[in-house]
């Protein structure tokens, strides 16, 4: 199939940036979306143009590196699918596809379609862990964990930290990302001692990074490749409020 692409090109952070159109021909429906971009880049390289910069690594939907806004949808039209798992068979011959980077003030554009998502790491630094220095752990079966708690923890831990939730959110909030981590650690017995302080600290950092608040619209869950449910944001709200109202919370 032949496809027209309109892609956001921006040389570097300080550049203004603009949409530029390109045509790619003979695209096989079995190609992944990123392989289609590889074709474009090969073409650009041979004509001496600067290839389009985009983030990707594992190309199997787990590392969270890929991050494209495709026709206004974070990770494109398929539910529960990261950009790298999207295939061209979901598009038709002659389609015009708009490709843009994630947009959020907390995610400055570095180049073309690549943005800086280190804000998400800083949120984790603020408390997204259980303090368990190496060597200090008791035998793994000392504490049993109810299966439903382990499952709930896993559901939260499945977040791939791609930032699609932020890109899709009309408020530019990272609450789904944050809620996922709070739920992961807060659902396990090992995570209880730091549960309140974790929620408080991570939330403080989330806001300091300039992410917006959550108005429960749920657009994030519609684009999340990992299927993180909206109730994890409510879990976050719950834990923050209880963290702030605990005596000695400070």
């Amino acid at each position: 199939m032949n496809i027209t692409l309109r892609i956001w090109r921006q040389q570097n952070h300080d550049d203004q940036g603009r949409m530029v159109s390109y045509g790619v021909d003979d695209i096989s429906p079995d190609m992944s979306f990123l392989e289609m971009l590889d074709v474009l880049n090969e073409q650009l390289t041979l004509t001496g143009d600067d290839p389009v910069a985009f983030d990707h690594d594992c190309r199997e939907g787990i590392c969270g590196m890929c991050s494209l806004m495709i026709n206004g949808l974070a990770h494109g039209p398929e539910a529960l699918t990261a950009t790298c798992q999207l295939h061209m068979r979901h598009f038709a011959d002659g389609d015009v596809i708009d490709i843009e980077p994630w947009r959020s003030n907390a995610f400055p554009v570095i180049k073309d379609l690549i943005v800086d998502r280190s804000a998400l790491d800083r949120i984790v630094q603020a408390g997204g862990y259980i303090s368990a220095p190496t060597g200090s752990a008791p035998d793994a079966n000392t504490t049993s964990v109810a299966r439903k708690d382990a499952d709930r923890a896993f559901d939260g831990a499945a977040c791939i930290s791609c930032g699609a939730c932020v890109a899709a959110c009309p408020n530019g909030s990272a609450s789904l990302f944050l809620g996922a981590k709070i739920t992961h650690l807060g659902s396990l017995p090992q995570g209880q001692p730091e549960r309140d302080s974790r929620a408080v600290s991570m939330t403080a950092q989330h806001d300091a990074e300039g992410f917006g608040g959550c108005t429960q619209i749920g657009e994030c869950t519609a684009v999340c490749p990992a299927g993180i449910p909206l109730d994890m944001i409510s879990q976050l709200n719950h834990d923050v409020l209880s963290g702030l109202t605990q005596p000695g919370g400070q």
């Binding site: 603020a126 909030s173 408080v200 600290s201 939330t203 403080a204 950092q205 989330h206 806001d207 300091a208 917006g212 608040g213 959550c214 976050l236 709200n237 923050v240 409020l241 963290g243 702030l244 919370g249 400070q250």
Partner: peptide, 11 residues
Amino acid sequence: RYGRALRSSVV
């Protein structure tokens, strides 16, 4: 952090 969280969007 506590102060920042008190002024957070969640609150």
